[in-house]
Amino acid sequence: MNSRRYTAIASVLVAVLWLGFATPLLAQDTAAAPSFDVELTGDYGYHLPPNIAPEGTYPHTVDSLIDILHYFMVVLFVGWGIFFVYCLWKFRQREGHKADAKPIKAKASKYAEIVVAIFEAFLLIGLSIPAWASVRNEFPTEEENPLHLRVVAEQFQWNFHYPGPDGVFGKTSPAFLDLATNILGIDPADPNGKDDITATELHIPVNRKVIADISSKDVIHSFAIGVLRVKQDAIPGMRIPVWFEANRTGNYEISCAQLCGNNHYSMRALMIVEDQGVFDAWYAKAAEGPEEFDEDELDD
């Protein structure tokens, strides 16, 4: 009996030693990591990424839902854990202690279950459904002057298609596609397409709503802007709109969240949120010389 207890204690000791070994690793420098090519705006770490959406829009509901859920989970788990550990200690097998098989009335657990169910219903109806309805249905109206653009995914790059100053997208078809000069397949005969902008960086003006239609040329990708809590699968054969708004200028990352092939891991793009004036200047310049612009971007 004693030797068994010693093995148990020894095992715990080994475990503690292991944690002691793991902790320095945790704190180890990340110097081995490659140097990153952009300086991101905001603070990233073991917490939610920065949220650059205006107060009161759905990305903040998403965050508060995540926060509330985790407090709720911790409370449940700790309460439950205290009872669990108490049982393990109090009812351990020992001299003079016998199990009691008489049925137990567990009213407390019944009430706890009901409370959990009600709370889940509240989270679902009170927070999740309105937020989702906002994501899917509450698109900005034309009076709010949203910026329209298209996001076209392909292995392994994000293409952003702006309608240009005329505000109308040119017709596109796979038939006109050319990797070097016409990556979106814009119809060269369509006058609306003449001033269209093709970019591999997402430029958006600060404090202006954006409606983006997400689609894909080849396989399923997922358009994710971490700082705006936007995530939408890009599905070939479909064009799915999302909307978002940023209220802080800076450089942010766009990522692909759905496995799309061997270079999926590096399928990222830069999102540049800039003042309306800076954006307008870029927009005008880009609309003039799309080819030239493409060349620059392809070097990236």
Binding site: Y46, L48, A224, S255
Partner: peptide
């Protein structure tokens, strides 16, 4: 929660993951 995506061959490909690599190692 910090936003690191699954199925990533190289977590260091994203600048946002820079501070997360310690826990990945652990």
């Amino acid at each position: 929660i910090a936003g690191m995506l699954r199925r990533g061959y190289d977590p260091a490909a994203y600048a946002a993951n820079e501070n997360l690599l310690g826990m990945v190692k652990m």
